[in-house]
């Protein structure tokens, strides 16, 4: 039942934007003030969060090693799972960030009759995760056509590539990533609903981003393919460009569905820095991933260690010799005569 509240919040956000723009005439609030505030919260919150993390020391060298580390020359080692140099760490980080490599290693534990304990690799999470993230990346990049003037060639090229195979008739002309992002999101949601262990650990703030993204995507798709009335893209681009050049203009008669879309996006931006979505920045700062497994080659010093000078027995005796002799403790060197 932990999904009821976040679902209700997303529906409420959509209803607020609809009523605000269609009935109360608050277009300038939802079209100008809220997007600016959301962008400000997103950028400043993101920086604050990363700088906050950067201020935490890492006391120990804690890379996760999932393969043979560097040892004897004849032992074949795993450069990506136990990297020892900066280059190898960069390779590992690249695969983590771009291919979600640690999800690829996901295993499912079960007990078969016998009883036999079995581990099977399952890659559904990896698959739908990749599907969702890359579709989202493409959708956001394609949106730049609404935000950049003139539209750079790469952006319009993406637009033509995305959906070229379905481009035979006007009825079928659609973006492939629209279907894929929705598929990815619904599968990720279904995973939280159906797998019992995952359902048990799912909290409201796991469901909220999923519902919010589903809301954004479905309002976008509705706007593009179904509720076209009042969705004049040239006017919307005017609004977007006005926002980016700090001379906001508010074209009249943009449909409420657009304000719903924009308000949900603004909510996402504002929520982002304070949520688990910060894994976007956090993945780069994970010590278990970004440290080299070289603790047997280079000494790692805990950055908060106090500066303790070595204190040999000889200097200890030098310091306390008089007291030691007075107490009758044997000393190696007598007090100087005189």
């Amino acid at each position: 039942m932990k999904y009821i509240f976040p679902l209700a919040v997303v529906i409420a956000l959509a209803v607020i934007a609809w009523i605000g723009s269609a009935i109360l005439g608050l277009q300038d609030l939802f079209g100008i003030v809220v997007p600016y505030a959301a962008l400000f919260l997103f950028v400043s919150g993101f920086c604050w969060r990363v700088l906050y993390w950067a201020r935490s020391p890492v006391p120990f060298k804690i890379p996760t090693t999932c393969g043979q580390g560097y040892s004897m020359p004849w032992v074949k080692r795993d450069k990506l799972e136990a990297p020892v140099s900066t280059g190898e760490v960069l390779g590992r980080m690249f695969l983590e960030v771009f291919l979600f490599r640690s999800l690829w290693r996901n295993t499912k534990t079960s007990i078969k009759p016998g009883p036999v304990l079995s581990y099977k690799s399952t890659r559904w999470l990896w698959f739908f995760g990749i599907l969702f993230h890359y579709s989202m990346l493409l959708v956001v990049l394609r949106h730049l056509r609404l935000f950049l003037e003139p539209v750079p060639f790469v952006i319009s090229a993406l637009d033509s590539l995305d959906g070229v195979s379905l481009h035979l008739t006007p009825e079928l002309s659609m973006y492939v990533t629209d279907a894929l992002i929705l598929l990815g999101l619904l599968a990720l949601l279904l995973r939280r609903f159906t797998l019992r262990p995952v359902r048990y650990i799912s909290l409201a703030n796991d469901y909220f981003p999923l519902f919010l993204l589903i809301g954004i995507v479905s309002s976008g798709i509705t706007m593009r393919y179904f509720l076209r009335t009042g969705v004049d893209i040239v006017a919307i681009k005017q609004l977007a460009l006005g926002l980016t050049t700090f001379k906001p203009v508010l074209p009249a008669d943009i449909a409420p569905i657009f304000y719903v879309h924009l308000f949900l996006v603004s909510s996402l931006l504002a929520y982002f820095p304070f949520s688990k979505l910060m894994h976007m920045g956090g993945v780069f700062l994970s010590p278990t991933r970004n440290m080299a497994n070289d603790s047997r080659m280079r000494r790692y010093v805990n950055p908060w260690n106090p500066d303790i000078k070595p204190h040999s027995y000889a200097s200890y005796e030098d310091e306390f010799r008089a007291d030691m002799i007075e107490q009758g403790i044997p000393v190696e060197k007598e007090l100087p005569q005189g």
Binding site: F42, L144, F147, L148, P150, L241, T244
Partner: peptide, 16 residues
């Protein structure tokens, strides 16, 4: 993230 802001102001496109 702020690409549209500096891109549009540099390209002097301003308004569509």
């Amino acid at each position: 993230i702020t690409l549209p802001i500096w891109y549009n102001n540099l390209s002097n496109a301003g308004q569509v």
